[in-house]
Nucleic acid binder design. Structure first.
Lengths: 249, 249
DNA sequence: CGAACAATTGACAGACCTCAAGCGACGTGG
DNA sequence: CCACGTCGCTTGAGGTCTGTCAATTGTTCG
């Protein structure tokens, strides 16, 4: 599959050949954007691009000429060490912005976790607009601040949380980002592989599997298929992360 | 000295009596600010405050009414879990800004690592100035982006680096922040305790001690006293972090 | 000099990683 | 349509690194 590949500008007629899993048609997902669209002003400057699963969107060290907005699919932001170790710093989901904080060159690589459609903005243009448009500016600053905060929470997870806590937090936070109420429960459609999760949580794939199996065995979650997780006992899931944060989730 | 101290506004007559180590007089350190001072415009809005070692500057959950600029001393940004685990997300040194990205409430606590002098700015004022002053705005945005980047590098360290690599990276990065050329070597004056280092690196104090002792035994560093580290063999120190980043330090 | 606190070192245990085999879903080819 | 190969996931057995517990040393200050 996806021998084809990413293409560009105009086209987008990438007959995303047959992929196996995440069925996300670049057309179906029609900009379900939150009402307040401070980014409308950016749209004119954007080029629509598509990438196939596992394709690289930009690479560490590359000149950071562009910023991006994810239209559909999901993206991982990652860094590789010389011996192959990998750390994923973030996952981006539909409507997330990324690449805006990269100064001069990208410090991390961005790769398509699933087939992906995104908008690409020239950084110079963005910086110009920031000076001109107060609403855009405020929104971008706010988003950057939020990202710094979530990155710091991620840091706490890697530094001080146990395996069980990390998995539980990961599921809770993904659920919330996908618009579920993690206290009620619901079904999560995980875009990423077990290995991606492991590299996000600073663990090995085996450890992630075992932890998920434990949760399954305990009846806290169900796993109808690999990429689908059902939160059955949201309360117990949350209890797994006490002592989590003193205040926030 | 500095038996005096912290205070402000009203009382806070916590006579933190005598402390043992870092002797930093709040008066001696007179704003050795880099030439380009985009922050001058902030100064009028700032209140000068002092804190004693281990005092809390702001606490997780507190209303984030203020932003801060560190004049002298150093500060840790940390989060506590219910069972006492602690993760330090950042250390701030002289002239660093902090608290600017905190939305609504502080997600982390800030505590004085040494006796500290700082400037406190009302957030509302800062936000107003950001809209008015282009240079201030650009500088603040740039600093926030830099902080996001260093936080992500920190993430890689916690997720994928070994103990030796973490210690080596920590020393290299602190040295650079203190203005040393980490390739040449030099002497680092560590403001923080071993426990602080441990909680910054996601380790225990014992593990940090052992790693430092190993480096000492190997002749890579010398440790004339607890808070002073001499980089004797900068090249070997750097070699410890290959496979570190593919490109950056 | 002694008390309090921080740092260091040692012995041991346990959590997580490594290595390896087995399973399951999916797609291709006979 | 079914068999087989591939790839990702899961499970098991065993080892290692780092955390835990405890004792010792060193430093600062009363």
């Amino acid at each position: 599959m996806s021998t084809s590949v990413a293409r560009l500008e105009t086209s987008l007629n990438t007959t995303f050949a047959t992929r196996h899993w995440p069925v996300i048609s670049g057309d179906v997902v029609t900009r379900v954007v939150p009402a307040d669209d401070e980014f409308a002003v950016l749209d004119d400057a954007g080029t629509r691009l598509s990438f196939c699963r596992n394709e690289t969107i930009f690479e560490e060290g590359e000149n950071a000429k562009y910023c991006y907005r994810l239209v559909s699919g999901s993206v991982r932001l990652c860094k590789f060490l010389l011996d192959g170790r990998r750390q994923i710093a973030d996952f981006f989901l539909a409507d997330d912005l990324f690449g805006f904080a990269d100064i001069d060159t990208h410090a991390f690589s961005a790769e398509a976790v699933t087939d992906v459609v995104l908008l690409r903005y020239p950084r110079a243009r963005v910086e110009m607009l920031i000076d001109v448009d107060v609403h855009l500016r405020r929104k971008l600053i706010q988003l950057t601040h939020e990202r710094l905060n979530t990155t710091q929470m991620h840091l706490v997870m890697l530094g001080r949380h146990t395996v069980k806590e990390r998995i539980a937090l990961f599921l809770i936070r993904i659920a919330e980002r996908l618009g579920l109420d993690a206290d009620v429960g619901g079904e999560i459609d995980l875009p990423m592989s077990r290995l991606d999760i492991a590299d996000y949580l600073g663990l090995t794939i085996e450890t992630v599997c075992r932890a998920i199996s434990d949760l399954k065995r305990a009846g806290v979650i169900a796993v109808p298929n690999t990429h689908r997780i059902v939160l059955q006992d949201a309360r117990r899931l949350r209890n797994l992360v006490e002592g989590a944060t003193l205040l926030s989730a």
